[in-house]
Amino acid sequence: MRDLVLWLSRELVEKKDAVRVETIERDRSTVLELTVDPDDLGRVIGRGGRTAKALRAVLEIAARRQGRRAVLDILD
Results as ranks from 00 to 15, higher is better:
A62V: 05
S29I: 08
E14G: 12
R68E: 04
L8P: 07
R65C: 08
R2Y: 11
Q66Y: 07
I45R: 00
L59T: 05
V58A: 01
I24T: 10
D40A: 00
S9K: 03
V58C: 00
L41M: 08
V19Y: 07
L4G: 01
V44S: 02
I24V: 15
R64Y: 03
I61D: 04
L4Y: 05
R20Y: 15
D39T: 15
R26E: 15
V13C: 04
E33N: 15
V5A: 07
R65M: 12
E11P: 09
S29T: 12
L4S: 04
D27M: 12
A63D: 05
D76E: 13
R2F: 08
L12I: 06
E25N: 10
L55R: 00
L72D: 00
L34C: 00
A62M: 03
L32G: 04
D17H: 15
L75F: 09
L4N: 07
G46K: 00
V31P: 07
S29R: 05
A52S: 05
A54F: 01
R47L: 13
V58R: 00
G46D: 05
L32A: 04
G67P: 09
K15C: 10
R28Q: 11
G49S: 06
D40E: 07
G42I: 03
D39Q: 11
A62W: 01
K16S: 14
D37G: 12
T30Y: 06
P38H: 05
T51F: 06
L4W: 01
I45Y: 03
A54L: 08
L41S: 07
V36F: 04
L6A: 12
I61H: 12
L6H: 07
I45N: 01
V58L: 00
T23V: 12
R26M: 12
D40Q: 00
G48V: 01
D76N: 14
R28C: 14
M1L: 15
R65A: 09
L8D: 02
A52R: 04
G67K: 00
L12H: 06
D40M: 03
R26V: 11
W7Q: 12
V21F: 02
V44F: 02
L12A: 04
